[in-house]
Amino acid sequence: MAKREYPDSPRVGVGAVVVKDGRILLVQRAAEPNRGLWAIPGGSLELGETLKEGAEREVLEETGIVVHARHPVYAFDFFEKDREGKIRFHFVIVDLLADYVRGDLKAADDALDVRWLSPADLETVDLSASTVRILRHIKFHG
């Protein structure tokens, strides 16, 4: 498996934008990059896995809920350099729209916490910059 930190080439990341009852599913990241910030659930795509399969697996692993992933709604590059200017992280991330199927929230895997957040709730948590851009792009207003 390719290295996450100081990779030799970009990694493919996949996430799921899940909205239920006017609230969006977000996780508080337990790992770098963006440790402690709230973000769309997701992670690295595994070899031989489709975007949809990866998004569904990542949501289940991080939150304990089952979703049905649909189509991509947002794609972006994520770079983070260290103090010497070396690329510490480089991801190409594709976020898919996904429908809640079943399950109860439980933070697991790479999540410190997991919540369904309303637009008003978003003002009370620290969001990753990419999550702010995604929410604007999908015009999340609950």
Rank of each mutant, 00 (worst) to 15 (best):
K3C: 11
D8R: 12
D8E: 15
S9M: 15
P10D: 07
V12G: 06
V12W: 13
G13K: 04
V14S: 08
V14D: 14
V19T: 07
K20A: 02
K20I: 02
D21F: 02
G22H: 12
R23G: 12
I24E: 05
L26M: 13
V27D: 00
Q28N: 06
A31N: 15
E32P: 15
N34S: 15
N34Y: 05
N34E: 15
G36Q: 10
I40F: 15
G42S: 10
G42N: 10
G42H: 06
G43F: 12
L45I: 14
L45K: 14
G48M: 06
G48H: 02
T50L: 04
E53T: 10
G54N: 06
E56G: 01
E56C: 07
V59T: 12
L60H: 09
E61F: 08
E61I: 00
E62G: 05
E62V: 02
I65K: 11
I65T: 10
V67G: 09
R70M: 08
V73C: 06
Y74Q: 04
Y74G: 11
A75T: 12
F76C: 01
D77G: 05
F78L: 08
F78D: 03
E80S: 01
K81P: 00
K81N: 10
D82S: 05
D82V: 02
D82K: 03
R83S: 07
K86D: 04
K86A: 01
F89D: 03
F89E: 01
F91S: 02
V92Q: 04
I93L: 06
I93P: 02
V94C: 08
D95W: 01
L96N: 04
L97D: 14
Y100H: 08
Y100L: 07
R102W: 02
R102T: 06
G103H: 00
D104S: 09
D104E: 03
L105C: 03
L105H: 01
K106L: 09
A107I: 02
D110E: 04
L112Y: 12
D113G: 00
D113L: 08
D113T: 03
V114F: 04
L117C: 08
S118T: 14
A120Y: 02
D121P: 00
L122M: 07
T124S: 12
V125W: 09
L127F: 11
L127W: 14
A129S: 09
T131W: 15
V132H: 14
I134C: 12
L135P: 04
R136E: 08
R136N: 13
H137K: 03
H137E: 15
F140H: 05
F140Y: 11
H141L: 06
G142M: 14
